[in-house]
Every structure is written in structure tokens, then in C-alpha cells.
Write a protein that binds this DNA or RNA. Structure first.
Length: 188
DNA sequence: CCCTGATTCGC
DNA sequence: GCGAATCAGG
């Protein structure tokens, strides 16, 4: 299949409407893969659709010397994957970008709830402080504890899963599936 | 394991 | 120009 004007036009339309590359690939007839769609999108220089004001510098461009695609059927030695140090650095190198608006909103809500909070605190302050030693707080999480939140953050019973997480994963095996396995993908 | 877009580079 | 392989991330 070739990129006719009609197919390109449809590609542009669907891409601008927010369809994913795989969805567009399915929409276009023929054996078009999502990679083909993405490649075409980049060549057309329309990879930017509705940026949220935030454009992180593309510094994640490694140039692996390893062969991209073996042209000969000779087998190559297997490569080890995933190390403990890699997982640790991945966590420590995490960058959190908080939009100014979020901070302002949080502050505003904080002050708004202040008076309401004060009344509640005076009546049930004892209940709030008792279980603090037993709960798993945010700061007590480590790289090997499941970080799946349980309960309402506003409730004193709020805690994290805390079970052992797989190497390099933020959640335990059970919650990792909950987090990444898409159940209602079709409804979009 | 499911998915997303981004990038590279042999063809 | 094309797109599979690969990467990086949620």
C-alpha cells in the first residue's frame, strides 16, 4: 500500500482528532501498522497535537551501537536485562513537574478547608493520632514495597499495600496487573 | 502483559 | 520516503 492523498488526508484528520496511532492504523485499510502511521506522522511533521504547555526536552535519545536488525540469520548472544541498581536509579531519578496552577489550587483549597478542618480536629483529634505508628505512610515506602493506595486519603485508615513488589516495579504482582491491564479499552 | 508515541536506520 | 525494531514511559 502506498500513501495516497486520500490516505494521508484521513491520517491527518484522525491524528488531529486525537486517535491513537494503532486506531488510525486499524481505520486505514491494508496492512498498515501503527509504526507506519507514526513514521508517516513524523515525516509530515505533525507530531504535535494539542500540547499541554509542557514540552520536556527530548534528551532521551540513546544511540545504541547494537545491531538494529540482524540481516543474517546468525544468532547473537543474549543480553541480561534489569538490575537492582537500575531499579534504584530509576526511582531516584524520577522528576515531578507540578504545574503552577495545581499548586495554587491546592493552596486555595487548603485555606478554604482550614476552618472546616479546625472544627473537626478539635472533636476527634484523639482518633487521628492513635494509629499513626502502625500504618504504612508514604515516607515509609521503599523501592520494594507496593505503592498501591488503599482507602480514602482523608480517612485515618488510609494506607498503602506495602507487599513486596517485583523488581523495578512500583506495585506488587497483583496490583501491577490492576494498574496496567486495560479492562475497558473499547469504551473510548 | 497491556498499551502509548519517539527514534533510529537499513532498505 | 518507508516502516520494523527498538526505546522509554504509563
Amino acid at each position: 500500500m502506498t500513501w495516497t492523498d486520500e490516505r494521508v488526508a484521513l491520517l491527518k484528520k484522525l491524528w488531529m482528532e486525537g486517535h491513537s496511532a494503532s486506531q488510525i492504523a486499524a481505520e486505514l485499510s491494508g496492512g498498515v501498522t501503527r509504526n507506519a502511521v507514526i513514521g508517516k506522522v513524523h515525516r509530515l511533521k505533525l507530531s504535535a497535537r494539542a500540547k499541554p504547555t509542557n514540552v520536556a526536552p527530548r534528551a532521551k535519545a540513546p544511540r545504541p551501537t547494537a545491531p538494529r536488525r540482524p540481516s543474517s540469520p546468525s544468532s547473537s548472544p543474549g543480553h541480561a536485562r534489569g538490575t537492582a541498581s537500575a531499579a534504584a536509579s530509576a526511582v531516584s531519578q524520577r522528576r515531578t513537574t507540578i504545574a503552577p496552577t495545581m499548586g495554587a489550587t491546592a493552596l486555595k483549597m487548603d485555606t478554604e478547608l482550614d476552618t472546616e478542618m479546625a472544627v473537626e480536629t478539635t472533636t476527634k483529634v484523639a482518633e487521628i493520632f492513635i494509629p499513626v505508628e502502625e500504618r504504612i505512610s508514604l515516607l515509609q515506602l521503599s523501592e520494594k514495597t507496593c505503592k498501591w493506595p488503599i482507602g480514602d486519603p482523608m480517612n485515618s485508615e488510609f494506607h498503602f499495600c506495602g507487599r513486596e513488589s517485583e523488581e523495578g516495579k512500583p506495585y506488587c504482582e497483583f496490583h501491577s496487573r490492576r494498574a496496567y491491564h486495560q479492562v475497558d479499552r473499547r469504551k473510548r
